[in-house]
Structures are given as structure tokens and as C-alpha cells.
Simulated scan of single mutants.
Amino acid sequence: MSDSGKVLLIDGMSFLFRAFYGSAWGGAYRQTSTGVYTNAVYGFTKMMLDYAELTRPSHLVVGWDVASRESLVRSQWYDGYKSNRQAAPDELIPQFDLVKEVTDAFSVPNLGCPGFEGDDVLGTLSTRLSEEGHEVIIATGDYDSLQLISERVSVKILKNGGKHEHYNPASLLALRGITPEQVVDVKALMGDASDCIPGCPGIGEKTATKLITEHGDLDNLYVNLANCTPKMRSKLEENRDQVYLSRKLATIIRDVPVEYALEDALWEYDRQVVQNKFDELEFGRTMAARVG
């Protein structure tokens, strides 16, 4: 593959959960005639095809979480990490395996690594691939992925209504006022309630962004605490260990031991194999028309 290759990396959990809840609001879950739930798989497939049409990749990979919360490396660092997560709805659970049958039909690799999260898999792949000279596009619902942006890596953040926000180094600076390297330091200060990352109590996104842009990074902020107001200095000093733990928790791991062969990720598929899977899942004419 030449330098002009373009790899689309999809955050499997982001797509699947968004597809499930986006189609479940009315309480009517799509099912086959035999009662198999397919609403999340149908929505996932539609989104995957949408982003493939939008970005025209040469290669496509899906990254997944494959571990329970308790077995995550971050849970070893901090007991409370993601402790607020609820069990997946009963209607969604069987679709975790089913969606991988669909991606297999498209010859799309499903990659995961025990102990690590999908973000870490995508972070590892995007780092390796960009260093090899490939253009990488990450499609996800997770703003943490903005730390992965570089000249060769861009991120599309999923939004409601099938829309997305596109981020590269320039648009990240224009829209959020920070660089990719500063994303984690902002999160270290503000925390993240959705993942139970504590941050520094009393500091929100606006203040965190202001502190990091003024000082450059977290380490320099702590070197220059004397320049902060007494109230802010006290807050930061008191929670120093928690802030640095939060930075560690929020940092995407980029050296996950995940094995892959890029040639296996070519965005090429046997239309008949895909059509057979669509027929099995009773996806209907609209979806069938999208694969010819």
C-alpha cells in the first residue's frame, strides 16, 4: 500500500450503542421473523456504510472493547474507573456477536485486546499506521480520541441525526482552542463523570482549558502554581495526586499488543456473501441496494 492509502478506523462500541439507542427510543426494537433482535446491528451497518461512502477508504478496521470493567488495566490503577456503567439491555447483548458476523461478511477485521479498551486499539493502530505514512480517519463518539489527532490522523465525532464534527489539528485549535497534546491535560483537570475520572473538584472545562492554554501543559501549570490565585493554588495542590491519576486514566494507550495485517483490512467484499447475511437478518431492500 502506498502513502496515498486511507484507513478508516471505526469505534465499534460507539457505533453499536449509538445505533441501538438511536432506534430504541420508541420502544420498538427491530427483529427478524424468528424474534432475533437486529436494531443495533442494522444501524451499525448503515453507519459503517455511510462513513465508508463519505471517506472512501482503501482499508477499514473496527476496534472493540473485549474486557469486563474489572479486568481493564485502568481498573487496576483506580477502583472507581467506569464504576457507574450499567449492564447492557437484554435486547442488545446478543447483538454484540451478531454485528461481528456482519463485519466478517464484509471481510472487515474486528480487533480487540484483553484488558484494553477500543480507544486503546484505535490509538495503537492510528499511531502505527500514520508513522508508516498512511492517512487515518477515526470515527467515534468519544472526544478522548481528539488526543490522537496529527497531520495524518483526523477524527470524526458522531453526533445525533447522522451528523458528525470533523477534527484535524487546525479545526481542533479553532473549535476548542487546544492542541491534541493538550486534550489529556484538560481532561486531567476537569475529569469525566461518564468514566468516573475524578479530575480536580471545582474545575470545569472552561477553567481547565484556560489553565492549560495559559501554561502550555499540566506539568508547567504545577511548576507555576505561584502565579495562580490563592484559591486555585490551594485547590490544585490539594488534588495534585488525583489530577495526575486522572491524566493517566484519560491517556489513550498506543502500544497495545494487538496483531493485524493491513492487507486483511482492504475495503473490498464479496457482495453475495454480504447479501446472504442481509437476507438472513431480514435487512430489506434499502440496505441490500447499498451493496449492489
Score class of each variant (00 low, 15 high):
L8G: 03
F15Q: 00
L16H: 02
F20H: 09
Y21L: 07
Y21E: 10
G22R: 10
W25A: 15
W25F: 15
G27N: 08
A28K: 15
Y29S: 12
Y29G: 02
R30E: 06
S33I: 00
G35N: 13
V36M: 11
T38Q: 10
V41S: 05
Y42E: 01
Y42K: 01
G43M: 00
M48K: 14
D50W: 07
T55E: 14
S58H: 13
H59K: 12
L60E: 02
S68F: 01
R69V: 08
E70H: 14
S71W: 00
D79Y: 09
K82S: 08
R85G: 00
R85C: 03
D90Y: 07
I93N: 01
P94I: 07
Q95P: 09
Q95I: 09
D97C: 09
L98S: 11
L98W: 14
V99W: 04
D104M: 10
S107N: 15
V108S: 05
V108K: 05
C113H: 07
E117Q: 05
E117I: 05
G118S: 12
D119H: 03
D120V: 11
T127G: 06
L129G: 05
S130V: 00
E131N: 13
E132H: 05
H134D: 04
A139I: 12
T140W: 01
D142P: 06
Q147F: 03
Q147N: 08
L148P: 00
V153E: 09
S154W: 04
S154N: 14
I157T: 12
L158H: 03
N160K: 15
N160I: 12
G162C: 13
G162L: 12
Y167C: 04
Y167I: 02
N168P: 02
A170K: 15
S171L: 06
G177D: 13
V184C: 05
D185T: 01
V186Q: 02
K187M: 11
M190P: 00
A193F: 02
D195P: 01
C196V: 10
I197A: 03
C200N: 07
C200F: 04
P201N: 12
G202K: 00
E205T: 06
E205D: 12
E205M: 07
K210L: 12
T213Q: 13
D217F: 13
L221E: 03
Y222F: 10
Y222S: 00
Y222P: 04
Y222R: 06
N224G: 04
L225Y: 01
A226S: 14
T229D: 11
T229E: 11
R233P: 00
S234F: 03
S234Q: 14
E237N: 11
E238W: 02
E238A: 13
V243N: 01
L249V: 02
T251C: 08
D255Y: 08
D255E: 14
V256A: 04
V256M: 08
V258I: 15
V258P: 06
V258R: 09
Y260S: 02
D270Y: 05
F278P: 03
F278H: 10
L281R: 01
L281V: 02
E282T: 11
G284W: 10
G284L: 08
A288T: 14
